[in-house]
Design a protein around this nucleic acid. Structure first.
Length: 193
DNA sequence: ATGATGATTAACT
DNA sequence: GTTAATCATCATG
């Protein structure tokens, strides 16, 4: 059992914090596109803002899969957002990835995004999926499988707890007050302050 | 079968 | 700061 697997066993808000600093890797045209996770949000059981609040549906089925599964959905009809499912199979909990710091494959990201400014490549949930070429085809993928075109990678350089900032989540209309958004303090690549 | 609704972004002013 | 773009999904009838 590797360390990512261990992180994913924790309570979902803890997972959201502990995923900060690790890498998301996508292979495209023989290029490794790598981003460091710098901003996340937790979506819990009995959480009005979670897609799983009303139980299983066709769309949110991936949220009930095993820890480390990818849940992708379309937002506002035109953007993809990606989540990492946490453990607790019947709860339907997941962590939304909101921003990445571009690490590698930056040229490919710039092509995918039609933007050159590093700050604009992955600083939002819809942006990072476009930069990494993630779409509905990636829904339900196992992000712990290295054979995949798209997976999570552990970073030994861990983020200190004191560097993590918690705030209310962005863009939701229900359960607005819960502090389930987490990001790395002073990181330039988060979606908003 | 239909209508409401976004876990957003980019391009404006 | 404001606003248009744009459509899959879900709940309801």
């Amino acid at each position: 059992m590797d360390s990512l697997q261990k992180i994913l066993q924790l309570e979902t808000t803890e997972v959201a914090k502990k995923l900060l600093g690790h890498y998301l890797i996508s292979k495209q045209n023989n290029v490794n596109i790598i981003g460091k996770i710098v901003e996340t949000e937790a979506y819990l059981e009995n959480d009005e803002a979670a897609h799983s609040f009303n139980g299983k549906t066709k769309r949110n089925l991936a949220m009930y899969a095993k820890a480390g599964t990818c849940y992708v959905y379309i937002s506002y009809g035109l953007h993809y957002c990606m989540n990492i499912v946490t453990t607790h199979p019947d709860k339907g909990e997941a962590v939304l990835i909101r921003a990445l710091e571009p690490i590698s494959g930056i040229k490919q990201m710039q092509i995918n995004r039609s933007k050159t400014n590093l700050i604009d490549l992955c600083s939002g949930p819809g942006k990072l999926t476009q930069a990494l070429g993630i779409s509905l085809k990636d829904n339900n993928k196992d992000l712990l499988s290295r054979n995949s075109q798209f997976y999570l990678s552990y970073n030994n350089h861990l983020i200190d707890e004191t560097q993590i900032v918690a705030t209310p989540r962005v863009g939701i209309s229900k359960a607005k007050e819960k502090p389930y958004r987490f990001y790395i303090r002073d990181n330039k690549f988060i979606s908003r302050k």
